[in-house]
Simulated scan of single mutants.
Amino acid sequence: MSETNGAWTWRLEDTSGTVVPVSEEYADQHFASQGDAESWVGEFWRELAEQGVVAVTLFELDRQVYGPMRLDTN
C-alpha cells in the first residue's frame, strides 16, 4: 500500500520519541492525503503497537501536522 509519491507520512515512535523500526509491511508508508494516512493508522494501530510503537506523528512532507499521538486507549 506504500505510495511513493505521497506527501503524507507517519513517524512511528517509542516513549522517548525515537523512531521504532517496524516490519517492512508497515515501514516507509506514504499516502496521497491526510485522510488516507489517518485511515491507515486507524486500521493498523494494534499491529504497530505490537511492534513497539507507542505514538505516531503525522507529517506532510517536512511539516509536522500533529503528534505525537499515543496509540493506546489508556
Rank of each mutant, 00 (worst) to 15 (best):
L48I: 01
R63T: 15
L61G: 15
W8R: 02
E43S: 12
D28L: 13
V56D: 05
E50I: 11
A37E: 09
R70D: 11
V19M: 04
G67Q: 01
E3K: 08
D14P: 05
R46D: 14
T9S: 05
G6C: 08
R70Y: 09
R70N: 11
W45D: 15
L58S: 01
V22I: 06
N5P: 02
E43D: 10
Q29D: 04
F59G: 00
D62E: 14
L71M: 01
Q51R: 03
A7M: 13
V53Q: 10
F44P: 02
R46V: 13
E24I: 09
L48A: 04
P68Y: 00
A32T: 13
N5F: 03
Q64P: 04
F31W: 08
L58P: 04
R63G: 08
F44G: 02
F31A: 15
E60C: 12
V19C: 04
H30E: 14
P21N: 14
E24Y: 07
E43V: 05
S16F: 02
T18Y: 07
N74C: 11
V22N: 03
A37P: 06
F59Y: 10
E24H: 10
L48N: 05
W10L: 00
E13H: 01
H30L: 13
G35M: 12
V56W: 06
S16R: 10
T4L: 14
W8G: 01
E38T: 12
V54A: 15
T18A: 15
S23C: 09
R11Q: 00
E13Y: 00
G17I: 00
Q64G: 09
W45I: 07
P68C: 02
F59V: 03
D62Y: 06
E47P: 03
Y66P: 05
S39G: 14
H30G: 15
A55L: 11
Q64E: 15
E13A: 00
R70G: 08
D14Y: 02
Y66Q: 08
A32E: 14
L58N: 03
W40E: 09
V20R: 04
W10E: 00
L71C: 04
W45C: 11
F59L: 04
Q51T: 02
L48W: 03
G17A: 04
T73H: 11
D14L: 03
T15K: 13
Q34F: 09
L71G: 08
G17L: 02
P68M: 03
L12A: 01
V22G: 04
N5L: 09
E50K: 15
A55S: 15
V41P: 07
E3C: 08
D28M: 10
W8F: 12
D28K: 12
A37G: 09
V54G: 06
Y26I: 00
A37N: 08
E38S: 12
T9N: 06
E47Y: 01
G35P: 06
E60W: 10
V65F: 02
D72P: 05
